[in-house]
Structures are given as C-alpha cells and as structure tokens.
Design a protein around this nucleic acid. Structure first.
Length: 564
RNA sequence: GGCGGCGUAGCUCAGCUGGUCAGAGCGGGGAUCUCAUAAGUCCCAGGUCGGAGGUUCGAGUCCUCCCGCCGCCA
C-alpha cells in the first residue's frame, strides 16, 4: 500500500546498534549523537540536559500486543515532538527478562532462559522497529550494564539501611513452585463443605507459607510519596486518586527478593547466594541503567516522562520513587499514565481470543495509519475502544480526505499548472479576504503555539485535533474562493497564487506539526511541497515560508482510501 | 463491606473553576459542486448530560441517595 511506503534516505531516526559496556561507560550520549544524521544539535541552552523519556520494559513471557505498541507510540510522539523543538532526547524502551514466569516459559519450550529471552525480546524490538519507534536505547535486564546498575542500587539501599532481612508470607503453590498474590488465588468449597484455596491459573491447591528474604522499608516513604503525588506528577490526575487513598493508610514494607532455590533466573543478591533480587526492583532499575548509573548519569537524569499503562502505575508511582528517595536520587518529573485499549468494548484477553495483533493492523492501515488512529482516539484518562470500523472511518475522513485531498486539490495541475508553491502577497490577500479568512490566517500563525501547548501537556490527541480543525477550515477557504475558476482567467493569477499559498502554507505547518504522529506521511507531504529537509523543525513551523519554489514530485495519493 | 474514580448525540470526545437549560468531529439524511484521493461545500435530524431528590434567581457543573462500570483497601 502506498500509504505506508517508506523513503529510507529520508528517515532520520534509526536506533543505533546497542553499544558495548565500554561505550556505555564512557559516553552515554555518544551513540545518540553519532546516529543523528539530519537533526543537528541546536538548542537554546548548551547545558540543558537531554530530554529523557521512557516506556516500561516489557515482560517477555508473551509476544507483544497492541497495548505495548500504544505505550511505545505515545512515548515516540512525545520524543519526536521534543526533537522537533531542537531538544536532544534519550528515549528508552526494552524488555524485562528475569523472573519465574520467564524461567518456566523457557523450560516449557526446552530452551535455556537466555535463548528464550533473546527470541521474545527480538519480537518486541522487531515490532518497535516496524512501527518506527525512534528509541535511542533498547535496554534488556539481562545485559551486564543493567546487572551492574541493579547491584549498585541494591548496595546503596543496603548501605543506607533501607533493606533488611525479614520474612515473606503468602499463598504458595507447590506444583507451580511459586508464591501467588491474592488475586491469583480463589477459595473453593467442595461437596463436604470444606474450603481450600487454589490457584486460579492452574487450578492446583495452594498453601500459606513463610520464607526468609529481604525487605525494603517502603512504609518509611508514605508521607513523602503523598507529598510528591500532590505536585501533580501523575498525569492525567484521575489515575492518581487510588494511590492517594492507599497512602492514607500507610504502606507495608516490600519484599525485594525471593529464595534462589525456586528462582534462579535473576540477579543474585550480593553476599547471599540463597536469594535472588525481586523482579520489580530489578526491572525498575532499567531507567538508571540507561542513564549510565552508577557512573555519572546526570546528562539525562532525572527522567522527564515515564510513559506507563495504568496497570503498572503503582510500581512507578510508589515503589520506584521510594527506591530513588532511599538512594537519594532525583525523582522523575512526570509520569504519563495511559488507560487500556478494549476490543469492541471488551477487555482484551488471550482466553477470549480478542487480542489485537498490531502487525495485523499495520497490514491493514499502514504504520502511520495505525499510529494516527491510536494517538487520535487514544485518550489517556479513559479506556480506548479499538474498533476496525472506527479506525477506517477516522483514517478515511481525516488522513485521506481532509488532509490528503487538500494536498491533491492544491497541487493538482488544473489549478496549479506551473507546479509551484507560490509566494504570498499581503495586499492581494487583504483585498480578497473575508473577515473569516483573516481569522483563519491568524489561527494558522498561532497553530504552532497552540499545538506546542498540547504536546507539552502530553495531550497528543488534542494536538492532532487542533491541526485537523485548521485543515478543515482551509478546505472551506478553498471552496469559497474557487481557485479553479481563477485558474481560467490570467487576470486572476495574483489571487490564485495567494489562495494556493494559504492552502500550501497550512499544509506545510500541519505537516511539520504532525511529524511526531505520522512521520512517514508527514515526510511525504513535506516532500511534495518541497520543504527542504533541514527546514522541518518546530521553529520552521513558527516562521512563514516564503514560497515561490517549485513543488516536489507527485507520487500519488498521500493515503489511499481504506475499503471495507 | 469501606473509600475513590468514571457515566454528555449512533461512535470518539469538549464542556475544569455554577450563568445563552449543551458543543465539535465522525457517522446518518438532504442539497449543491466537479479544482481534487467518489473528494469539497452548505443545510438538517440525533441529546431523560446514568436515575431520583435537594441547594440556588439559575446546575451537565455543587450536595444526598440509588443504578452501572473500574480501581484500591478489608
């Protein structure tokens, strides 16, 4: 499909090969800088740290799904936005590869855990590469630098007396050889009226057990966490309410290790071969790993935005900042917590068989099409409802019709035989413009600022809405002025030029501002308008384009209409 | 069971802080146009703002109770 064809030469964020330990140790940003071909470093403050945005690292017990993609795409839009504004960006994603479920899944496939992890992690990376996620760092909990970072954090927490030896109690499945949480077990009554607890997943009986392990003094941090949440660090705020009410009752200390006799696949506790570090302390430390910890890591620390799904908000908004406070490290600035995608109004579930495979959707809508749909309909404070008919109508109406057709109208030979992006003449514009036209022209000039506000408030869906509303107005402007009539009369050449300029200038600005959402389609649009590759930044959107330049090659419709 | 969040047109959302007793886009119906990707434009229909009370001159917005969905705690 034409809609998602790529131009390799014009793509300008390819993830670099993961560097060796030495490269990480020496210069964290080295690889990022080396990879940046088209974007030059050009920001207001030389001393400003890199914008650090993260997805969670994804558990490799199963293949990636739409929810994983949504997190990555949302973070990608924000990362690209920051680069558009000239900011250097560290964008990390990756995989969490330790834990009992990984160990068990590998065993069930007759593979060593490492080989199993390599396989599933490559599926995640493959998906992200396929949908143009412009991460600068792909981190895996099995990589040596991560182990080093985790051990360093662990040791710091021990030294500062925030980890102590204690006991862990919970429901234990002898068959599964695992502790289960309250929501993993259920009470069952047999015919004799006798009750037992059993695992929901396996249906096997569980018993209450105690074991010795390490505890983190999470309880110590309840007041500080409450204060921190009050600074509106969680956005949208609706997701923070449950955390606040939980903090009112205080927090229990957190078990941060498991007995190694059961859990071998993980980082051993230093100085205690009988214990393995608990996966959430291990996993959350990935953000420090990326930053270069325990070496100097303030080139990008603290994280500017952690993008997380609501199911793992507790870990990121309670445990993670508590670990950081305990280690005396700065906390993340924002946590963007997004809701889930349902499928036709129903929660996605493997057992129901309604999980959306993102690669299927990419086949149907194209990479940029799926990105557009997810970012347009995805509203972080509410669960989205993934529907193919809704995706189709949304893409047809907006990408294909409002934007793509406007491009065709203004660049077609019937009204633009010379195939030019004409210049703007203020006098001619003022002569022909109605009051509405003047307002529309002014709105175009304020569109970059309006869009910037939405992007920086992390409201990507509202930024898209702003841009599309403007393009709809431009279609109306075209309809009113009828440039196809002007084209028939040489005396109207000046007026025709101005109308075409306004249409193309609007498309140019929209194209620049939509790069974070639909990088390939935006690139094609800007190519058609012959916007130079080095004039596609946010500051270029703020400035007027003189025009009076030939158009780029016509490569056909920007986005082909989707059929039923 | 306790606490909290959410519920606005067929769909997706806006409407924070009480003030034309509700808007946008999409979808639907009608008309029109043919520069254009069967696109564009104009007009119209669609709303018990979950339900019932209350406060107020006035409530989608504040309060109470109830219903549904979700989350946390027990």
């Amino acid at each position: 499909m034409r809609g998602f064809a790529r131009y390799a030469a014009l793509r300008y964020y390819r993830p670099p090969v993961i560097p060796t330990i030495a490269a990480y140790r020496g210069n964290l940003l080295k690889t990022s800088t080396a990879s940046s071909v088209l974007l030059s470093r050009n920001y207001s403050s030389e001393n400003e740290k890199s914008f650090f945005i993260t997805t969670p690292i994804f558990y490799v017990n199963a293949a990636p799904h739409l929810g994983h993609m949504y997190t990555a795409v949302l973070a990608d839009a924000i990362a690209r936005w920051q680069r558009l504004c000239g900011r250097d960006v560290v964008y990390s994603t990756g995989t969490d590869e330790h834990g009992l479920k990984i160990q068990q899944a590998a065993e069930s496939q007759g593979l060593p855990p490492r080989e199993f992890c390599d396989s599933v992690s490559s599926k995640f990376k493959g998906l992200f590469d396929n949908v143009d996620i412009s991460y600068s760092h792909y981190v895996r909990t099995t990589q040596p630098s991560h182990q080093e970072a985790t051990l360093a954090l662990w040791n710091r927490l021990i030294e500062r007396d925030f980890i102590y030896k204690g006991t862990y109690e919970g429901w234990y499945s002898t068959s599964d050889e695992a502790f289960l949480t309250e929501d993993q077990v259920k009470e069952v009554t047999d015919k004799n009226g006798q009750t037992t607890m059993m695992s929901i997943d396996s249906g096997r009986p569980v018993e209450w057990m105690k074991e010795s392990n390490y505890m983190f003094r999470l309880s110590h941090f309840a007041p500080q966490l409450s204060d921190w949440l009050d600074t509106k660090v969680i956005t949208p705020d609706v997701h923070a309410h449950g955390l606040r009410s939980r903090l009112k009752f205080g927090l229990d200390d957190l078990s941060v290790s498991r007995e190694r006799s059961r859990l071998q696949w993980g980082i051993p506790v230093p100085g205690d071969d009988s214990q393995t570090i608990y996966v959430w302390l291990d996993a959350l430390t990935n953000y420090l790993t990326v930053s270069g910890f325990p070496d100097r890591h303030d080139a990008c620390w603290p994280a500017d935005v952690h993008v997380v799904g609501k199911d793992i908000l507790t870990f990121h908004a309670l445990y993670w900042p508590a670990f950081l406070m305990a280690a005396d490290l700065p906390l993340p600035r924002k946590i963007l917590c997004h809701s889930h995608w349902l499928s036709d109004g129903i929660k996605m579930s493997k057992s129901l068989g309604n999980v959306v495979n993102p690669l299927d959707s990419v086949q149907r809508y194209g990479v940029d099409g799926l990105r557009y749909y997810l970012l347009r309909d995805g509203v972080p404070h509410m669960d989205g409802n993934y529907r193919d008919d809704r995706a189709k109508t949304c893409l047809n109406a907006e990408v294909c019709n409002t934007m793509g057709n406007l491009l065709s109208r203004s660049t077609g030979k019937a009204i633009n035989p010379s195939q030019q992006f004409p210049s703007f003449n203020q006098d001619v514009f003022q002569a022909l413009a109605r009051e509405d036209d003047v307002l529309m022209w002014k709105r175009l000039h304020s569109l970059p600022a309006a869009t910037k506000k939405e992007y920086e408030d992390l409201h990507v869906y509202r930024a898209i809405d702003c841009i599309m509303a403007h393009l709809r107005d431009v279609n109306g402007f075209m309809q009113h002025h009828q440039p196809w009539q002007m084209a028939k009369d040489p005396k109207c050449a000046a007026e025709l030029a101005v109308v075409l300029h306004v249409a193309m200038e609007s498309l140019r600005v929209a194209g620049i501002l939509l790069q974070p959402v639909i990088p390939n389609l935006a690139s094609e649009l800007l190519n058609r308008l012959s916007v130079p590759a080095n004039q596609r930044t946010f500051s270029n959107a703020e400035r007027s384009f003189p025009g009076d330049s030939p158009l780029g090659m016509d490569t056909g419709p920007l986005y082909r209409r989707l059929k039923s």
